[in-house]
Design a protein around this nucleic acid. Structure first.
Lengths: 221, 221
DNA sequence: TAGATTGTTAATCGATTAACAATC
DNA sequence: TAGATTGTTAATCGATTAACAATC
């Protein structure tokens, strides 16, 4: 499956058939993060100026990004929070439920399994695995820990799209290989290992230290 | 402290006095992430092509980014991993130790406190706080949990630059306010709350679900 | 030497922003 | 109506990339 060749020809004015530029997709995701929180805080309306303050994105840029897909705002008022959340989900084509398999029932895995941070965005942890036999069968939040041996069967039966790895560095690559073989396309890696995956699989290695370094630069400079 | 006005005038060819563009600083940080892991795996030399595979950044871009600051590579060979790590640290002016205060001794806080993910990049967790009196005094990894009441004193005496929040959403904003008042300039927030901080403080709210959504888009589209 | 890879140019492409008419 | 904010244009600015000579 070649990501570039399979695309239909660019059709101006029909964003449904076009793949968003990296930057646009990244910014729309950020807007969604802020909008979701704003909604929780009871806000029903938000202006591009307010969005700009929270996202560090220029307000013109925000209006421009949105107006490429429709007329979502009301002049003099702003954007309806609920409506904009739905609109962006449509644009990103990520409305609906997406199932996650979580690997590792240690401190980090437990923190993830018992948090609701994914739920707000349509993700659901449907299976929690651990390689340690003594942990298999124990209960962590709403989950009963399963053996990592069951991984291949679970990916198919639970329609798993995303795998989240909260395992020791040494275990990450082998797990990634098995997940790729089983058909998982997105791997979110919380270990430090740089994963090697085929081009059609996305592996994201989280690195809070690097994010901090980046923030630190702008403080020190 | 105005971030824009205080800058010296641009002096071409003297990057020491210039603030890096956002994109350059972000990419240099990514290179550092890969280089650090490459070094751990025993690699002594790396080409721009290899770096490109791991960072998803075009190899020409990488050479261009680096050559703006010096002649770090050897034609026909590549870059010395050790040398490049040091060079980038110099460019980012983030060499040396930076002290972190960690808040929250729950599952996430414990995971962070017992991991060495920060150590590789010169960060050191020097204090672990929790608001729960029953946790104060208990030992978590190399740390004894301290009362959050001690925060202000610790920021000064431990020379804390960065605060990492692994606390419930409800507690995040109040903690942030106290940290700002105490002089902390960078807050790394693992709760879902959007923090309100003054312009001279950087607040980064981690959102794995949003990162996943972004990755999902490019898989679905 | 032959092969590989850097450093750098020059051209292109897309992102960013100020400004303002439209309109709620 | 008066004030506010969107949607959109037009101009600028910076990021990206192909290509290749220099050189290890």
């Amino acid at each position: 499956m070649s990501a570039t060749e399979d695309q239909p020809q660019d059709v101006d004015g029909d964003p449904q058939t076009e793949r968003l530029a990296l930057g646009v997709a990244a910014r729309l995701s950020r807007y969604l993060q802020v909008l979701t929180q704003a909604r929780k805080m009871g806000k029903t309306t938000i202006s591009s100026k307010e969005l700009a303050e929270y996202t560090q994105v220029n307000s013109t840029q925000i209006r421009r990004d949105l107006s490429g897909f429709g007329r979502f705002g009301k002049r003099g008022v702003g954007y309806a929070v609920d409506g904009l959340v739905e609109a962006i989900r449509e644009i990103l084509r990520t409305a609906g439920q997406h199932n996650i398999a979580l690997f590792g029932a240690g401190n980090l895995g437990t923190a993830i399994a018992t948090s609701d941070m994914f739920a707000d965005h349509g993700f659901r942890v449907v299976a929690l695995f651990d390689a340690d036999a003594s942990k298999v069968g124990t209960v962590v939040g709403p989950h009963t820990v399963r053996s990592a041996d069951d991984l291949e069967a679970a990916v198919v039966s639970d329609e798993i799209v995303v795998a989240v790895l909260a395992v020791p560095s040494e275990a990450a690559q082998e797990l990634a290989d098995r997940l790729v073989a089983a058909g998982v396309k997105i791997i979110f890696n919380y270990s430090e290992t740089l994963l090697q995956v085929p081009p059609d699989v996305t592996a994201h290695t989280s690195s809070p230290a690097i994010d901090l370094l980046y923030a630190l630069y702008f403080y020190l400079a």
